[in-house]
């Protein structure tokens, strides 16, 4: 696994697309969280409550989860590139197995998820300390486990993006299909299904990993809806990630490269 990881790093470190998308994601995370705290509610800056530990972590991960499309697109580009450059084929000729190809890309998924989660942790600490310097010490890291759930969510999203990319092979098509499923198709199916079943659907289960700070308000308006708690959602999401990796492997095994 370490040698696979090293090979993936060699491909990434000088790839401008990788850095541009990563920088874009980091700036958008900052801008989103900053803008959200600077909305005036009743003549008062929302940030006053938003940036308070420990509530901050829930708000931060919730806002960030709206931006998961960018890392997913990054993974799709990295996978479909390998088809465009025909490098998957060359690596299999040179000694990789089909499983190695999936493992290599899964390593990238983990890398991006860890990088973004660490960034989010720093972002949270920065905002929290800057806007409410008085609250310190003890309460700072309570509920910081939200970041871990956010990490699992990212891994889930990107694994799914990886599967779509291995399946469709063309960058544009894969991005379109991923967006169509994650934004529209699954919601249409959920709409037809009882909550007790659709809470286990991939997008909904992944969404449940990050808590909505306005859940009570939303349920009051839209009616009660059955949600998994983040801890409960971890189980189906981990299963989905394994399934996505396994299916990616099967696709590579059955098809010509």
């Amino acid at each position: 696994m370490t040698s696979l990881f090293r090979i993936e790093l060699r491909k990434l470190l000088t790839y401008s697309t990788f850095w541009i998308l990563l920088a874009l994601q980091c700036s958008l995370l900052f801008i989103f969280f900053y803008a959200r705290g600077h909305v005036q509610v009743n003549g008062q800056m929302a940030g006053a409550t938003l940036y308070q530990f420990p509530k901050l972590w829930m708000h931060l991960t919730y806002v960030s989860s709206f931006l998961n499309l960018i890392p997913a697109i990054l993974i799709i580009i990295l996978v479909t590139d390998e088809y465009t450059f025909r490098t998957l084929r060359q690596q299999v000729i040179d000694g990789f197995s089909r499983a190695n190809l999936v493992q290599g890309k899964y390593a990238v998924v983990l890398l991006v998820a860890v990088l973004l989660s660490l960034y989010l942790l720093l972002l949270g600490l920065g905002f929290g300390l800057y806007f409410s310097p008085s609250s310190g010490g003890g309460s700072m890291f309570t509920e910081a486990q939200s970041i871990l759930y956010y990490l699992v969510q990212l891994v889930g999203y990107m694994s799914m993006a990886m599967l779509v990319a291995f399946l469709l092979r063309k960058t544009g098509l894969a991005i379109l299909a991923f967006m169509a499923y994650s934004l529209i198709i699954e919601r249409l199916i959920q709409w037809q299904m009882p909550d007790s079943i659709d809470k286990y659907f991939p997008m909904k289960a992944m969404g449940a990993l990050v808590q909505n700070p306005h859940k009570e308000l939303e349920q009051m308006v839209l009616g009660a809806s059955d949600f998994l708690t983040p801890l409960q959602a971890t189980v189906p999401v981990v299963l989905y990630v394994s399934l996505f990796c396994f299916l990616s492997y099967q696709i590579l095994r059955m098809r010509d490269l």
Partner: peptide, 11 residues
């Protein structure tokens, strides 16, 4: 070497 040279263009 099969068919075409397969490498990463940006490297």
């Amino acid at each position: 070497l099969l068919e075409t040279p397969n490498f990463y263009p940006y490297l």
